[in-house]
């Protein structure tokens, strides 16, 4: 049986207390929410914090507030709650789809929104046991000096594998970070960093407490996920797209985000910009798909062949934009996800 290493355990009741603990412990402590990412990593000795600080007992982190003026979601809201909540539609559909496609039903009952946003980057050379990693003399991300995906690279290229991250970026989400010294709110897209090790700009003393979203009235959004099987698997490519269409179906605003194709979700700015002021016709969609695929740089460290994953990027952008303009692409969606989204 894989066992956890020894750790100290704290379970604060308030955000203030939690912030005090993290301030005192700094890098020695890690916040624990659903545990579905951190605990396997600890069992494989990829992460060995001296202290685990549970966030589950902090009431305020479990709140969901959806208002016309905008929404606020506590970091400890589970992915099941988001997936099952029918209020997450239209503008928020991408988030509900992303949440509903994470891992498995049991994991979604445990895993939290905050945890999925902060999901450790993944790599076939890193998500392995201590013994396995020893047999390759470890890697750049943990205990080693070589990136085995790209031995000449001085940067770790582990892949961002969050589903909700790209979806929330497409919705323009902001996150609230709380620490003993105060709090700050940043755009989620500014929180991520394109580095497999230093992939998130959350300081060790900060708690990601809340996600906030503007009113998305008039927006439609969608999330497309590529993985081998109908469940369990992390995304090896994803596309989140959101558009705001005017009365005559021209694009007023658009965001396209490509996930699992780099160390962070990538905003496809040029692709989104190319759509502005145009109707979502075939030509516009094809151009946007080609522009978006250009930024996807999958590497050989996940399931599936990397060139094929890149090829699918354009296809997924096409499906997503067709879906947003009202085409019925349910059959295509179901063929990839193996299940319907109701």
């Amino acid at each position: 049986m894989m066992r956890l290493p020894l750790f100290e355990f704290r379970a604060p009741r308030t955000l203030e207390e939690a912030a005090r603990i993290l301030d005192a412990e700094r890098a020695n402590a890690m916040p624990l929410a659903g545990g579905t990412d951190l605990l396997p990593n600890m069992k494989r000795r990829q992460q060995v914090p001296r202290m685990l600080m549970s966030l589950r007992h902090i009431e305020i982190l479990n709140r969901v507030a959806l208002h016309d003026s905008g929404s606020r979601l506590g970091a400890c809201v589970t992915l099941s709650e988001i997936a099952a909540d029918r209020r997450f539609r239209n503008g928020l559909t991408a988030l509900a789809q992303a949440a509903s496609l994470v891992a498995t039903p049991q994991i979604r009952n445990m895993a939290t929104l905050g945890g999925n946003i902060c999901l450790d980057t993944r790599c076939n050379y890193y998500d392995q046991s201590y013994e396995w990693r020893k047999s390759i003399n470890f890697c750049l991300k943990k205990d080693g000096t070589t990136c085995w995906v790209a031995p000449s690279s001085r940067k770790c290229v582990a892949v961002s594998s969050t589903d909700t991250g790209p979806a929330l970026m497409a919705l323009g989400a902001r996150v609230r970070l709380v620490s003993r010294s105060g709090e700050r709110e940043v755009l989620l897209s500014d929180l991520y960093n394109n580095d497999g090790i230093d992939f998130i700009k959350r300081r060790p003393d900060e708690i990601l407490a809340e996600v906030s979203l503007d009113n998305l009235h008039g927006w439609k959004s969608t999330y497309w996920k590529l993985r081998r099987r109908g469940s369990f698997d992390f995304p090896v490519l994803s596309v989140a797209a959101a558009v705001s269409l005017s009365g005559n179906n021209t694009v007023e605003d658009a965001r396209i985000v490509v996930g699992s194709a780099a160390c962070r979700p990538l905003a496809a700015m040029e692709a989104a910009k190319s759509l502005l002021g145009r109707p979502l016709n075939q030509q516009a969609i094809e151009e946007a798909a080609a522009l978006a695929a250009r930024i996807a740089k999958p590497l050989d460290n996940t399931d599936f062949d990397m060139t094929w994953r890149k090829r699918v990027t354009a296809e997924f952008v096409t499906y997503a934009l067709r879906e947003l303009r009202g085409d019925d692409v349910r059959a295509e969606r179901e063929s990839f996800t193996r299940c319907a989204f109701e």
Binding site: N124, D127, Q128, W132, S135, I136, N137, T146, W148, P151, R228, R229, G230, S231, F232, D233, D303, R338, C339
Partner: peptide, 28 residues
């Protein structure tokens, strides 16, 4: 995985895990 011969003698199972060894689920 055979790591680059110039750098390593390693030959490892690519993913000895039930997550990355793909067994079809009820949805498949």
């Amino acid at each position: 995985r055979r790591l680059p011969k110039k750098l390593s003698h390693a030959l490892v199972h690519k993913f000895p895990s039930i997550l990355e060894y793909k067994s079809p689920t009820s949805l498949d």
